[in-house]
């Protein structure tokens, strides 16, 4: 009787999970895969083929955009790591008590604010009539307005800003767990600051570095707002292509194929990152 009851509880707890995963995650992705394999041959007539994927590989604009999105995302990830690491180290190792909490919170607040608001802020700063341009003119450093929006540097600034928190938070967490006495021991044994950084601090922070990089890369790759608003019409970001195939051109077959390619690239990078560093998905994501 008791085991019947606990079995019932088990099934009752399992059903929302299964319902959620099946109807909103698994079936939609399977469905999208089949749509991407459909080739339109007439009105409401379709054939199964790889034609949509062939379109991607035969049209330079499409795969150039794809490659560009990938390497810009990798660049944004590395830049975020380079800028964020000293900050995380400072918060974790060189501050104590209330200062530490305050600095950490100051890092978190921009992340709670909508990405749209953050991007809007950069637009006000960078555009031709924007604050930076006017300040530079006022200071006499330039004659006439300067346009700083709608180029790759603007996209990069926005991407790094948007993803900074996802790098700093895991880094602070892992660096926090590094015992100070290990660093002291390194100095006692005659290590230089650089060799200690390379042989003690970075190996210890590796799990944080990996999970930060994975999350930042995924967020940059799948970002739509920042490239479109800061990069303008010629931003050439892959998510922009997906959006235009779906909403503007109503070509769902090609759009689905694009979606799958993006999903494939992002999963591949996550997989490689986890394999190279010997981490598991559950540990990395649960932080």
């Amino acid at each position: 009787m008791k085991s019947d009851k606990s079995k019932l509880t088990f099934w009752l707890l399992l059903s929302p999970l299964i319902l959620w995963l099946a109807t909103l995650i698994i079936l939609p992705h399977i469905g999208m895969f089949f749509v991407s394999l459909r080739e339109k041959v007439g009105v409401r007539e379709y054939e199964t083929s790889f034609a949509n994927y062939a379109v991607f590989f035969n049209e330079p604009l499409y795969w150039n955009t794809f490659a560009r999105t990938a390497y810009m995302s990798i660049a944004a990830t590395l830049l975020t790591l380079l800028i964020g690491f000293p900050i995380a180290y400072y918060i974790a190792k060189l501050t104590r008590g209330r200062t530490k909490t305050t600095l950490f919170l100051m890092c978190l607040i921009p992340f709670w604010v909508s990405e749209l608001v953050r991007t809007f802020g950069w637009m006000i700063l960078l555009r031709e009539t924007g604050v930076i341009s006017q300040v530079l003119q006022y200071a006499g450093l330039v004659n006439g307005p300067v346009e700083m929006l709608y180029n790759d540097a603007a996209i990069m600034t926005g991407l790094v800003y948007t993803s900074m928190l996802f790098m700093v938070v895991p880094l602070v967490t892992t660096l926090d767990s590094l015992d100070d006495s290990l660093i002291e021991a390194g100095y006692d044994l005659g290590g230089t600051s650089f060799s200690i950084l390379r042989e003690i601090v970075i190996p210890h922070a590796m799990p944080g570095i990996v999970s930060g990089c994975i999350v930042v890369f995924m967020l940059s790759l799948g970002n739509y707002l920042t490239p479109i608003l800061l990069g303008g019409k010629d931003s050439l970001w892959f998510t922009g292509l997906i959006y235009s195939q779906f909403i503007t051109r109503f070509n769902w077959e090609l759009g689905s194929a694009f979606g799958f390619l993006l999903l494939g690239l992002s999963s591949l990078i996550v997989f490689l990152g986890l394999k190279l560093s010997g981490q598991s998905l559950s540990k990395t994501m649960a932080r």
Partner: peptide, 22 residues
């Protein structure tokens, strides 16, 4: 458990289009 974590690594725009198509 891994399936449960998957939504974290699927880009938001792809979650959107897959649900739209489905």
């Amino acid at each position: 458990y891994i399936l449960m974590l998957l939504p974290l690594i699927i880009p938001g725009i792809i979650l959107g289009i897959s649900i739209l198509v489905f």
